[in-house]
Design a protein around this nucleic acid. Structure first.
Lengths: 196, 196
DNA sequence: GTCTATACCTGGATAGAC
DNA sequence: GTCTATCCAGGTATAGAC
């Protein structure tokens, strides 16, 4: 994040604005963040912001696309690197845990930004590429007999629901200690429920 | 909801306002709902609203307390009616599924109202009575050997995480059909992961 | 591309009659 | 307790100089 602010060309003002917005959106919330706030935090004038983005909503949208795109890429890599559905899901969850700890703002924004409230036109996150990828994996696992033969939606929620809830608790400050400590147990419970 | 609007004494203006707010908050979101909107929707003047509530936030807070209180009561009843942790958790989830279908606004408000954004002073939902009750149950189950011996937080998220995610998908319109159809499978997966 | 200054308006909240 | 009328702050977005 910080390393994006290298001076020089001044070409990446857009990124600076974006990451300032991310900070504020996740700490104060979208509606309690004014464009003036973003300008101050990014040390950029309002005029500049409106030069790069049509309006406040467009900032959120750009952020959303950026973050979800990155996540999608990561999941593709995971898919390439691992063959069994077991390993893929396991690594995905582990990666999500890591992301939550290394960049809670990112995770928070993606997860409970309440997209539908300030991105009304946006499909819910579940129609996004990462979500589709997860579903695809689960379906594969059902076909090849690795996973219990049930409605894929049920299976997917069973595998990822527990870990995601854990992440929520973490972001809300309900849990202390590092997530990674609990990873093995969480994964155990999640997988036990759907494996054959 | 509608039946609360019986005329006569005019004593329950407060409830009328509350449920009008609930409708709007869940459909348009807290920040996109103006107090004027609430007044129109409840067919009540602004002055009247401000007579009953200190400010807009107080409306949300009152709603939150009301709804969570009701839910807490329901869970207490479940606890009285069922003895094994297995049955208690099962019935709780089933009840949550029913509530989601009979009153999605209520469920939506409680679940992803993003309390922290418009109720900044409010503890996250996880510090609420219903959540505490769930944790208590899980702990009991661990003690009496009904449930796998792990960190109670891990167990709780494993049991309720999947079902809750399912409810989210439902509220976001990702799933069609009734939740109740999927209940048995969802429950199966959730319990399988933590039972001994 | 970036800045400052400003127009404009929505919406939260109050005053005061009834 | 309920209403109407009004005030006023804050915030989005634009204009126009540099």
């Amino acid at each position: 994040m910080a390393q994006l602010q290298r001076v020089g060309s001044g070409g990446q003002r857009k990124e600076i604005i974006l990451y300032a917005a991310l900070d504020l959106f996740t700490s104060k919330g979208f509606f309690s963040t004014s464009v003036h706030d973003i300008g101050r935090h990014a040390e950029v004038s309002i005029g500049s912001i409106y030069h790069h983005f049509k309006n406040k909503e467009a900032i959120a949208k750009a952020l959303y696309d950026l973050l979800l795109g990155e996540m999608g890429q990561q999941m593709n890599e995971i898919k390439r690197a691992h063959k069994s559905v077991h390993d893929r899901c396991r690594v995905i969850i582990s990666t999500l845990f890591d992301l939550t700890e290394s960049s809670p703002e990112t995770m928070g924004f993606i997860l409970h930004a309440r997209h539908r409230e300030f991105l009304p036109l946006e499909q819910p996150i579940c129609s996004s590429r990462p979500f589709e990828l997860m579903m695809k994996m689960v379906e594969e696992g059902i076909e090849n007999g690795e996973i219990i033969k049930l409605d894929p939606v049920v299976v997917a929620t069973s595998i990822f629901g527990g870990p995601l809830r854990m992440i929520h608790l973490m972001l809300d400050g309900v849990i202390e200690g590092p997530l990674s400590e609990r990873f093995e147990d969480v994964w155990q419970c999640a997988w036990e429920g759907v494996s054959l």
